[in-house]
Design a protein around this nucleic acid. Structure first.
Lengths: 352, 352
DNA sequence: ATGAAAGCGCTAACAC
DNA sequence: GTGTTAGCGCTTTCAT
């Protein structure tokens, strides 16, 4: 209750604790660090003084003077999306398990902000900077990221790209991807082998690597079976619910012919389902619908969505693990985690 | 490409920049701060030196030496839940708008971890520590939080409680709540006025303030209309999908009589809907179902869920704003944001 | 086992 | 305007 030591206001420092315990600042520091022999009696006295003064180390001073910084930065488009949120959870958990603090930054899909934020993390001397989300296939942007990779490396930190393609040979960055193209391939094959022949792909985002890979898998599956996808059925749009809704409504209005829809993401699928229901089209009786990501909502849609499952949390955990232990795992700095399809109620052999 | 100044390895410091620009460290610091007159020519030279050395300030040194720390801590149960994720977004946006970095910590519903994490944020000298999520009505826990509130206050920081009841009179903490009880009251009244008389409440969590308030509103609505809620229809459980599923399945198995379900949260409602569909009960023809929170999934459920809307992002933004400007807004340190019901497809006047 | 002293990189008086 | 001089709170040699 009473304020002994520091005059009530200011936070107390090692010096205050030292004085109260009748020792030197170094001794206090030693019991703080724990990694040095201190007489049991002394330690006890110091500990008590700390408690009495409600002492808390100053993380900044510690980071400056000593070695340990202990923080990991997580840079994401938007925490609000379940896709990112789950990766964030993996990152946070692993970071916390490794004794690291997690700094969160949002970029709202703005490449400029990604750059700015990575710079900010450089100031914070984060042990690792984890960037997740679609990469822009843009020359200058990539050059800047490459620069950051080198800069972070020089500072003993590490740039980690999650769900993005590598920056190129020799760039000191860790990459944790998931098999986007194969997931799309497997899913399309599922649809094709069910007997669907006119599959609409909704949500192609030009210049976004994630989207491109999904389209690639979609096309390759057709080719593999000696089929050809109708380019008119591949519709551009964003990875949003409303894009799925509008695109599908348009297809319906245009009386386009299709017996299945491959939505680029589950969110897009939610919109597709909505539009289909409004249009009186039954799923899966009339049209099969599939998504990508396997976010929680997939199971709550009606019918439950057949989709491609991505190991979200594992992506996050792996990102942190690889970055922090890169000395021991020099050969594991590029990982591609597997994806697999989950068949639920939204797909079925076409009727007739 | 070549490493002038620091010998290639270490990050460069103000001193390196100063030397290269032929000025003193203070001058470099001044152009860094921007808030001090420096000759244009000098500034240019310094800036150039910085660029050439790829200099980045050390946030820790800055925090130590000078005044500015600039960070806000966000402590949450689980980023994965849409409820929290949206608040997180509000926090992150406002923090970023106020030039603050956002640190994210997860507690997984463990009160002990909340305590530990708040302590950690104290070490980081965060400008504000924002804790969101249900509070435990536990004496010792509250005492510890109260202690932290004082400690943070003494250190010039601020504890902010979001969606939790105040700690008590005279405790230096900011509280941003939403009107939980009134939301439940309004929703129950909606159900009652539709003609429902046997409403099951699923997901009462003993000792969790959020849950308690919702139950209170539920009961008060009944009382106000001179009705009495059947205690046997109030079932305990957690705020999860599977709790909703199991509880409803049990009710169905027990042949309990009810014409509406008030799920404590939208996630619970998702489980309720699932169990109902499996049981062959039609919504809303046979039974009306409502939720609470208005998370994105509410609109994708089938039928779309009638629920109570909470201003998630605004809660987050307000939390940061009040905490950072508490000097100018001393009388606004306890806010209760409004809630309102959103009627969608899952409620209807009972048939017969 | 403990203390004294020298920084870590930066900002902030205080001189000139 | 710009340089000099002190620290911020902690860790870490180097003595003892």
């Amino acid at each position: 209750m009473n304020a002994t030591g520091p005059s009530g206001r200011e936070a107390s420092t090692v010096r205050d604790v030292a004085k109260r315990a009748g020792v030197s600042a170094s001794t206090v520091s030693r019991v703080l660090g724990g990694t040095y022999p201190v007489a049991a009696a002394t330690r006890t006295r110091v500990l008590r003084a700390m408690r009495e003064l409600d002492y808390v180390v100053n993380a900044h001073a510690r980071a400056l003077g000593g070695s340990t910084n202990k923080s990991v930065a997580f840079v994401v488009d938007d925490v609000t999306g379940p896709f990112y949120a789950h990766i964030a959870r993996g990152v946070e958990e692993q970071a916390s398990a490794e004794g690291r603090l997690c700094m969160l930054c949002t970029t709202h899909g703005d490449p400029q902000r990604v750059l700015a934020v990575v710079e900010l993390m450089r100031e914070q001397r984060a042990d690792a900077v984890i960037v997740v989300g679609g990469a822009w296939e843009n020359k200058e942007y990539q050059a800047r990221m490459t620069h950051f990779a080198h800069a972070l490396d020089r500072a003993g930190s590490r740039l980690v790209l999650v769900g993005r393609p590598p920056l190129g040979e020799g760039v000191p960055a860790t990459v944790v991807e998931y098999d986007n193209e194969n997931g799309a391939f497997a899913m399309t094959t599922h649809l094709l082998s069910l007997g669907h022949r006119r599959i609409a792909f909704i949500g192609k985002v030009p210049g976004l690597s994630t989207s491109g890979q999904r389209v690639d898998g979609f096309l390759r599956a057709h080719e593999t079976l000696g089929l050809e996808a109708d380019p008119g059925l591949i519709v551009e749009g964003e990875f949003t619910r409303s894009c799925g809704y509008r695109a599908t409504a348009r297809l319906l209005a245009d009386k386009a012919e299709f017996d299945a829809v491959f939505a680029a993401t589950d969110m897009v699928a939610a919109g597709v389902l909505h539009a289909l229901r409004e249009g009186g089209v039954r799923v899966p009786e009339d049209v099969s619908v599939v998504g990508y990501d396997d976010i929680p909502v997939a199971i709550d849609l009606h019918p439950a969505l057949t989709t491609v499952s991505i190991p979200h949390e594992e992506l996050g955990r792996t990102a942190v693990r690889l970055a922090l232990h890169r000395e021991e795992l020099p050969d594991a700095q590029h990982q591609v985690l597997g994806t697999h399809i989950v068949v639920r109620g939204s797909t079925r052999r076409p009727g007739r």
